[in-house]
């Protein structure tokens, strides 16, 4: 636990034994691709108290193999079709440059305020927390060495200048140091898109994302296919991440393998 206490509720000294038990149970549940001891360390490092750690809305084992959404937290309709491997939204999309997505947490009241505090209020101290979550996520879903480099979803220059920082750039930097995979800083946002809340409907959003990104510089001409992991805070409809993957593919002669990892799904 950090000196400042739990980032979510502020409790300083946690009941040690109780927290240890919670960490242990998460480590057992999440250590499929890495060792228990490693996962234990990753969970233990999270600046959360026993209570908040226990309530963490981690997405379960049963997910859409395309977008990483949890089966258990969908409506009745989807339950009926649960023998499908991909969710309805994904089946309606068809071919995409994005191989697939994985997210660590469900986006609910547990983390909404924290993300807002970081992203909109600009409390950059939370970069450490989200970086740790993403590190945990990558070890949960992927094998080490599965990617050549990381690419954070960029902000438009104007938005970046207003906000002062790119929430994912900081987190990507931290993840990169933790797993030893470099960050590639060659994706730019060329189109300013309206804020999520100001958009009406899915269609509009998907449409507005078209050609919103550009892939530039040396990265656009790799000699052999590279394996890229896109990073974002949240996968909502996936249009942002698909547009990023599309932009990367577009300028490449040798096509990369692109996946994405988000904190919230």
């Amino acid at each position: 636990m950090s000196q400042r206490g739990c980032v979510r509720c502020g409790i300083r000294v946690a009941a040690r034994n109780q927290r240890e038990a919670v960490v242990r149970s998460w480590a057992v549940r999440l250590s499929g691709r890495t060792s228990y001891a490693h996962m234990y360390r990753l969970v233990d490092q999270l600046p959360l108290c026993a209570g908040c750690l226990e309530e963490m809305p981690v997405i379960g084992e049963r997910i859409c193999e395309q977008c990483g959404r949890s089966w258990e937290h969908q409506g009745q309709q989807n339950l009926l079709e649960s023998r499908a491997l991909r969710c309805r939204d994904c089946r309606s999309i068809g071919e995409s440059a994005l191989g697939g997505n994985r997210g660590l947490l469900r986006y609910d009241d547990w983390g909404k305020d924290l993300l807002g505090l970081y992203k909109y209020r600009g409390d950059e101290r939370l970069a450490d927390f989200f970086g740790k979550l993403l590190t945990l996520a990558i070890y949960r879903y992927f094998r080490s060495g599965q990617f050549d480099y990381l690419v954070a979803v960029p902000l438009h220059a104007k938005r970046l200048s207003e906000r002062g920082f790119n929430q994912m750039e900081r987190v990507a930097g931290q993840l990169s140091r933790a797993i030893g995979v470099p960050v590639q800083d060659a994706l730019t946002r060329t189109k300013e898109t309206a804020k999520l809340s100001q958009q009406t409907g899915r269609e509009v959003r998907i449409h507005s994302m078209q050609d919103a990104f550009a892939w530039k510089g040396e990265a656009a001409h790799p000699k052999k296919p590279s394996r890229i992991l896109l990073l974002d805070d949240i996968y909502t409809t996936g249009s942002t991440l698909r547009a990023c993957a599309q932009a990367i593919h577009k300028d490449e002669t040798v096509k990369s393998h692109i996946w994405s990892l988000t904190i919230f799904r």
Binding site: R121, G122, D123, E124, R125, L160, S161, E162, R163, G164, F165, N166
Partner: peptide, 21 residues
């Protein structure tokens, strides 16, 4: 902080951050 608003050495206050940076 490395700030994209000014591109200079920058710093922000965490104490009153609830009222804007």
């Amino acid at each position: 902080t490395t700030c994209h608003t000014c591109g200079q050495g920058c710093a922000y206050c965490t104490e009153c951050i609830g009222m804007g940076r």
